[in-house]
C-alpha cells in the first residue's frame, strides 16, 4: 500500500528506510520552521582576518545592518556560531587554526568564503597563502571582490539563505562526508537553487 494518510507515498520505505518517506503535513511544517529559523538567525563567528574583515564589520554596521536578518550577533565562541565568514587571506600558518575553529563549530554550519584571497589566494599567488580556503573547509558560497563590498557579502548571505530554504536538512550528512556542504537533491519541482533577488520580496 503505497499511499497512507499522513505518511504519503511509502513505496520507497522498503529500500531506503525512513529516509524514503515523503514529508507529510507534520514533518514538512517542522522542517520549514527549522529552515526559517536558520535563515533568520544565522549567527556568524568572528573570524576576521584581513581587509575583508573590515568590510564584514561594515556590513554589520549602520549603513548595511546585518541585524535585519538577526545576524548582528557575532559570536566570539565558535561553539555558538552557525556561519563562518572567512574574511581575508588565509596563510599557511593560519590554516590549521581555521580548520580547528571550523571543527569547533556545531552542526549545522556553513562557510562563506569572502573575497578573492580566501577563495583562491587572489593576487597573492605565492608560497605564503593557502590558494583557496576550500582546500581546508567545505565552502558553501564564494563572494568575489577584493574586498567584496557589503552588498556583495549580503548577496552571498542571501544566496546561502536561499540554499538553506530550498535544501533539505534531514539527509545531508550522508551526502557530503560530514562537512558543511549542503548541496542536496532537490525536492520535486525545485530544480535550481539560484535565485534572482530583484524578484524577491
Amino acid at each position: 500500500m503505497p499511499n497512507l494518510p499522513l505518511l504519503g507515498d511509502t513505496s520507497r520505505v522498503a529500500d531506503e528506510g525512513l529516509e524514503g518517506l515523503d514529508h507529510n503535513f507534520l514533518t514538512g511544517k517542522i522542517e520549514d520552521l527549522v529552515k526559517w529559523s536558520r535563515t533568520r538567525s544565522m549567527w556568524p563567528a568572528t573570524f576576521g582576518l584581513a581587509c575583508c574583515a573590515l568590510e564584514m564589520m561594515a556590513t554589520g554596521a549602520a549603513h548595511y545592518d546585518l541585524a535585519r536578518w538577526g545576524m548582528e550577533v557575532f559570536r566570539a565562541s565558535p561553539r555558538q556560531a552557525d556561519l563562518m565568514i572567512v574574511a581575508g587571506r588565509v596563510s599557511q600558518k593560519m590554516a590549521p587554526i581555521l580548520r580547528q575553529v571550523y571543527d569547533q563549530m556545531m552542526e549545522p554550519k556553513w562557510v562563506i568564503s569572502m573575497g578573492v584571497c580566501a577563495s583562491s589566494g587572489g593576487m597573492f599567488n605565492n608560497y605564503a597563502l593557502v590558494q583557496g580556503v576550500d582546500q581546508i573547509v567545505p565552502v558553501d558560497v564564494y563572494a568575489p571582490g577584493c574586498p567584496p563590498g557589503p552588498e556583495t557579502l549580503m548577496h552571498a548571505i542571501l544566496q546561502l539563505h536561499e540554499k538553506i530554504e530550498s535544501g533539505e536538512i534531514t539527509s545531508r550528512r550522508d551526502q557530503r562526508d560530514g562537512g558543511a556542504g549542503i548541496i542536496v537533491e532537490q525536492r520535486d519541482g525545485q530544480t535550481a537553487t539560484q535565485m534572482i533577488l530583484s524578484q524577491r520580496k
Binding site: V34, R40, D82, P108
Partner: peptide, 10 residues
C-alpha cells in the same frame, strides 16, 4: 527564530 535554531543545533 533564535530559539528554534538553537534547539535544533548539535
Amino acid at each position: 527564530a533564535d530559539g528554534i535554531k538553537l534547539f535544533f543545533k548539535e
